Each structure stands twice: as structure tokens, then as C-alpha cells.
Amino acid sequence: MWQNKFETRLELEPRPSRYLLIYQIVLHTLAGAALLLPLILPAGVAFVLLATAGGSLLWQVWRHYREGRGTTRLIWRTDGAWDYQIGVQYWPDLSLLPSTYITRGLIILHLQPVKGRRLYRVLLPDSLPKEQWHLLWLRLRYAGFSEEDVGVKG
């Protein structure tokens, strides 16, 4: 699918996004606050929903902490293929799918291995150094798919 060749490969080591963590904390807090309002729910159901929201928040914070301690590498090779490594797991020869979403403030990479399930990677501007973010955005925006193929939103 990706037809362009590049002179240099692009090596990325994304960090967990603080923006995404803050967004998740705010979202879970609002959900918990909504459950504390007087609703027509039995107290047991409200408690279970509140505990579920709290458990989900704890899970997201733990995932953020765990991702921060591990190493994640994305390599966009000169032949247009991708390599993805997270911890000890390694996926070589991934292809970038047209469903990749690109905006100035959010990039969602959809990568497909030769065999297996698609891999998704959400990147926000604080996940990468500014120069790497800009270079990745430029390559994705201008180097390959047409705007009809990729969700390009400027």
C-alpha cells in the first residue's frame, strides 16, 4: 500500500502521553461525579458503576506507568515498511493502512502485519520530541496516500 521510498529511516521512541492520561482522569472523574448525582438507580447499582469507573481509572493509570517503564520503538524503514517493538515483543514488516488518522494534534497509526491482527498506536504531540513529531506528520501528510485514502484533517 505504501509506495514511497525514503532516503533515511525514521526511528521513533514514543513516550506515554501525559495529555492522554489527564484526559482519562478528567473523563473518569466526570463519570464518577455523574453517578453521585441523585439518579433513579438502586444504591447497589450506583455503587457497582462507581467501583467500575474507579477500577477503570486505576487500570489506565497502571498502563501509563507500565508503558513509561518499558521501551517502545517504531521504525519507518526506507522501503516504506514499519517495525514495531514494545518491550520484548517485536513485529517486523508492518504496512501502514489507509485508515491511519492524521491531524496536527493527534496521529493514530494503523499497522498491519503480514499475518495477524492490526496494531494501533495513538500518538499525541507530547509523545515525541517536536522535531520527530513534525517529521512524522510531514511524512504521513505529504509522502504517500491521497487524502481520500487517509483521514487527513489538516
Rank of each mutant, 00 (worst) to 15 (best):
G105P: 07
Q112V: 02
W133F: 13
T100R: 02
K130G: 11
L96C: 12
E131S: 12
D93F: 03
R104T: 14
G116F: 02
Y120N: 13
K115N: 07
R117N: 05
D83W: 04
T103Q: 14
R104F: 11
L124K: 15
P113E: 01
R121N: 13
W137F: 11
L138C: 10
I86R: 00
Y90H: 07
P98Y: 01
P98N: 05
L124N: 15
R117A: 06
V122N: 08
G80I: 06
L138G: 05
V122I: 15
T100G: 09
R139G: 04
L138A: 05
S127Q: 09
R117E: 01
L123W: 11
S99Q: 08
W82N: 06
P92A: 03
P92T: 03
D126K: 13
K115F: 04
L109F: 14
L74K: 11
S127D: 08
P125C: 14
T72S: 00
Q112Y: 06
G105Q: 13
Q112W: 04
G87S: 00
Q132G: 10
R121K: 15
R77L: 05
I107F: 08
P129G: 10
I102T: 08
Y101Q: 14
G105C: 06
V122H: 14
D93G: 06
V88S: 09
I75C: 10
L140A: 09
W133D: 14
R77C: 05
I108F: 13
H110Y: 12
V122G: 06
L124S: 14
V88D: 05
T100N: 09
Q85N: 08
R104W: 12
L94D: 09
G80V: 03
T72K: 00
L140E: 11
Q89A: 10
R121G: 07
L135A: 12
D93Y: 02
I108P: 09
L135N: 08
Y90S: 06
L96Y: 05
H134K: 15
V122W: 15
T78Y: 04
L123Y: 09
G80W: 10
L119F: 08
L124H: 15
V88W: 07
L74F: 11
W137D: 09
P92G: 03
V122L: 15
H110D: 05
G87E: 09
P125S: 14
L138Y: 05
A81C: 06
D79Q: 03
R104Y: 10
W76G: 03
L136P: 11
E131L: 12
D126I: 09
W76Y: 06
Y90R: 10
W76A: 11
P98A: 01
V114N: 04
D79Y: 04
L96G: 04
G80M: 07
W82G: 00
R73Q: 14
W133P: 12
Y120H: 13
V88L: 10
T72I: 06
V122E: 14
D79V: 06
P98G: 02
L94V: 07
Q112K: 05
H110C: 08
P113I: 05
I86N: 01
L97R: 04
W137G: 11
I108G: 02
D126S: 10
L138M: 07
Q85D: 01
T78L: 02
L106P: 02
H134R: 15
W133Y: 12
